[in-house]
């Protein structure tokens, strides 16, 4: 085969044209028929501006917006569908998960959590490697928050409604003073949980592990001395709980466990059931009880059969 300049040029263009037809035009025709999925809605102008900021600041290089079927292992609730993206121009799927997937981020946290997190992610997540976005102006930050809170669209709106409802209730309780606040907090917990003491005895090893978890997960809000004055505090309302006020107010291992596992929707207190296994939740709870509250019910009655490893 003799290769002439025209042969090379037009031959390769012809190949490209054929390939474009197969892998771009045909799929385009195919996917054009995609119908919006059940969660799709239009974005508000603020959300659209926030999306712009999301692109400008390269969030897409660290965050995917696409949940895969086997992400159920990570606790995902909803797998991405083609119809979720029909309004996205450009689509922001992302190709790396340096940070978590955000396609269903809306309503996971209340707005104040995001505000603290964007000023400096280490405030709410001590080990985070996400860049600080303190350079965003007040207005820009709120646009970005509106966008992040819209991720998941109608599903996010439902979660946001829940956040708002409990935000109002928790603020009211907080403003009623420490005793009323603690009573309100504990009233929300199913009675069975309240009555359960921490089933495992306090041990040096357990406290050391609890301390490590506290440092990696809780420090930015509740502060190293547990008084709720961590660096995130100025941004959060109600502010992080000062653990010392819990003393003598009916606190139990079960309450601590439940609050850490489930979080307190409406407040910045996140749920940790995906991040921490059961043993770790008991241990960080006991660390808080022993170190900050000064009162632990670990290994007291009512109790079942002791676990095999206990001394």
């Amino acid at each position: 085969m003799k290769m002439t300049p025209a042969g090379v040029t037009f031959g390769s263009i012809a190949v490209l044209a054929a390939v474009v037809f197969v892998v771009v035009v045909l799929p385009y025709a195919d996917t054009q028929k995609t119908r919006p999925s059940e969660i799709v809605r239009r974005r508000t102008p603020e959300e659209a501006l926030g999306r712009r900021l999301y692109m400008e600041n390269g969030c897409v290089y660290c965050h995917s917006q696409s949940i895969r079927a086997f992400d159920w292992g990570m606790g995902a609730q909803r797998v991405a569908k083609a119809g979720d993206y029909v309004l996205d121009r450009p689509i922001l799927l992302g190709s790396a998960r340096t940070g978590p997937d955000l396609s269903q981020e809306g309503g996971e946290h209340p707005d104040d959590w995001h505000r603290a997190h964007f000023v400096n992610p280490r405030f709410t997540r001590p080990l985070s490697i996400m860049p600080p976005f303190s350079f965003l102006a007040e207005k820009e930050a709120s646009h970005l928050i509106r966008y992040v809170q819209s991720l998941g669209m109608k599903a996010a709106d439902r979660r946001m409604a829940r956040q708002k409802r409990w935000k109002a209730a928790s603020v009211e309780a907080y403003e009623a003073g420490p005793a009323a606040n603690v009573a309100w907090l504990h009233d929300q917990i199913p009675a069975g949980w309240r009555a359960v003491p921490n089933p495992y005895p306090t041990s040096e090893a357990g406290l050391a592990r609890g301390r490590k978890i506290y440092q990696d997960f809780c420090l930015g809000c509740h502060s190293p001395i547990g008084d709720g004055m961590g660096p995130a505090q100025p941004f959060l309302y109600p502010p992080p709980l000062n653990f010392t006020i819990l003393k003598g107010r009916g606190i139990s291992g079960g309450i601590l466990y439940y609050q850490i596992m489930n979080g307190i929707t409406g407040t910045a207190m996140p749920y940790f059931k995906k991040d921490l296994e059961s043993e770790k939740i008991w241990e960080v709870g006991d660390y808080v009880a022993v170190t900050f509250i000064g009162q632990s019910d670990a290994d007291t009655a009512p109790k079942g059969i002791d676990a095999a490893y206990e001394p």
């Binding site: 054009q32 995609t34 996205d88 689509i91």
Partner: peptide, 8 residues
Amino acid sequence: LSGIPDAI
């Protein structure tokens, strides 16, 4: 473009 065709 918009949506999945944009990704492709």
